[in-house]
Write a protein that binds this DNA or RNA. Structure first.
Lengths: 342, 342
DNA sequence: CTGTTAGCGCGTTCAC
DNA sequence: GTGAACGCGCTAACAG
């Protein structure tokens, strides 16, 4: 069996409490005693049992980021930023995956697993607003994601409509007339990332006094292969277009691949704009013009909201707690080489 | 306070034990009793305390993948594969980050945190073989990574030398004569990913009866920006080259960006091969020729080795346990559009 | 400065 | 089929 604190205590001729005090430094301990304890701990190869400490303390100093997919660069970057912020504070970040489907997200939420964390940042993708409204959890929870969310939960997102509008306006201002939207969808009233960005695409057209042709709206899940497929489909169906607004940089990567394989030049024949400003988007060929949300600010806000909820003492959507806050991070356009100069 | 099992027991007029039995299903419970317990649990909003269960059970049904960086696509893909395999088994994967430096990795290892998991898969990047040899941990541990590793630990990696040799041979066979290696380094005897791949690059030249010019070896950390910088530097210094072997796909992305900005055509002017076959490598412009390690097999092997170690009962590098196993996954070349047909 | 007591919430063990 | 007692390992609270 692994040695426990009592074992160390016995070996050092003190009580378990004293061992604890030496190890945590929470109370003053005589130099001689301390030395004996440390020696004994080293001799026995003692290792603290964190599970026991957590049970006792009711705290784990760990925050979880729950994302739909481990292998999506957007979440990887988010995780890295959050980890940096938490580390500055002596806390840890762990990342868990749901699987992106509504089913999977609901299952993840149902798990008592979240109790293992001081707080959870949940990236919502599959669940509907109604699902979210019904959530029950006793752990401090902050929602991330571009959906419209029920008022009762803290929520951080970016300004999707404004960003899409900027992107599309830029395409129209630089001479494009037929701007396809890859990843577009019916701008449903209750939001979601794609509907919001589609709304921005529409709005920019309205601003410019035009109306986009409906066949320029190409639905696609946010992954690069579907971006390529979307371009192939536009070409196959003979739909004319001189620009693409890809609703995510991930899609844009595939769009660029699709245009390249068709021999279309970017930006001369077709301009392209993405959204998200992933770290690697600067290195696509050509370098991707995109919309940059305030990533650092979003990460910081998410943690601020989480910390504000305390260590879970206040219970679910507690009426005694502060009212939920909904933060929308600003966006800006970063012109690069997939668009012509304005 | 949150309700505990005793609270539920009292409400249902039974003992805590019975509640536990109802919830876990480990023992038979009368239908009527069971109904009352479930009702009481629901009424009180009872939630199982996992920390307590873990303390009691000494098991968490959770495996940790510890990686250098959350925001590197290679690890994201690995995590996704592992999560899928574990989920099939009712277990969970969490991902933690070290920070890639030797310091950070050592600190991570020292953390008692790992006790929170039934097993740990550690991606080693910063630590030396000597550091790894000194590791002490009471948790089942399997090492991942391309370094040479001490015999005492289970270790899964890919065949770096063979892969690099394949890649370079392909470049030489398709007419290139000056093959730069981006991410190359002195092939140190004790290994590491870059030395091993550099050795493969050398070996391919030897096979072809040539010797690569030393100035074609360009060191670079594995990130796309350094890939671009490497190309810029080659061009700035006037070093002639007609092919690049980028030791990772990540670097290759940057290499392609660097070549594009210089107006060099791929593969006509310069051929490029990467290594790792990331999911998105097919979508670079042009599509990247690369070396594909047996990803699925590596993930499966890692878990097999971990499970073989049991639930940590056997202690550190236990002499009573099975001998450590070192698995080297095979590699194959995937020719795409950054190289000419053979 | 150090020890004693007690309990965090659950589940194994043994009794009925 | 159900319950009582005890302990997993650690640490507050209260002695002294």
């Amino acid at each position: 069996m692994k040695p426990t604190m009592s074992d160390v205590a016995r070996a050092a001729g003190v009580s378990a409490m004293t061992v604890s005090n030496v190890l945590t430094g929470r109370r003053r301990v005589g130099a001689a005693t301390r030395a004996r304890v440390q020696q004994a701990a080293a001799d026995l190869g003692y290792e603290l049992n964190l599970t026991a400490r957590h049970l006792r303390a009711g705290r784990t100093d760990t925050v979880a980021l729950v994302v739909p997919h481990f292998d999506h660069p957007y979440y990887g970057e988010l995780a890295a930023r959050l980890a940096r912020l938490l580390a500055a504070d002596g806390r840890h970040l762990v990342v868990e995956q749901t699987g992106a489907s509504r089913q999977a997200e609901l299952a993840a939420v149902g798990q008592a697993r979240w109790q293992l964390y001081d707080g959870v940042l949940l990236s919502v993708v599959g669940m509907s607003a109604a699902d979210v409204a019904d959530l029950e959890t006793s752990v401090p929870l902050v929602l991330l994601g571009e959906q419209e969310m029920p008022a009762r939960w803290d929520h951080v997102r970016m300004d999707n409509v404004a960003g899409a509008r900027l992107a599309t306006a830029h395409l129209l201002a630089t001479g494009s007339r037929r701007v396809a939207i890859v990843g577009g969808t019916d701008p449903a009233p209750e939001g979601g990332m794609m509907p919001a960005r589609t709304a921005g695409w529409s709005a920019a057209h309205t601003d410019a006094g035009t109306v986009p042709a409906p066949e320029l709206l190409v639905p696609a899940p946010s992954d690069p292969f579907h971006g390529r497929d979307a371009v192939r489909r536009l070409l196959r169906e003979g739909i004319a277009f001189d620009a693409v607004f890809a609703v995510t940089d991930t899609l844009a990567t595939g769009v660029l691949a699709g245009l390249a394989e068709a021999g279309l030049r970017v930006p001369q024949d077709v301009q392209v704009v993405g959204f998200d400003n992933l770290a690697t988007s600067e290195l696509t060929v050509p370098a991707l013009t995109t919309v940059d949300p305030a990533h650092e600010q979003m990460a910081a806000d998410a943690l601020r909201l989480l910390d504000r909820l305390g260590t879970g003492r206040s219970g679910v959507g507690a009426p005694d707690g502060p009212p939920a806050e909904h933060v929308t991070a600003p966006v800006r356009l970063i012109p690069r080489a997939t668009t012509r100069p304005a």
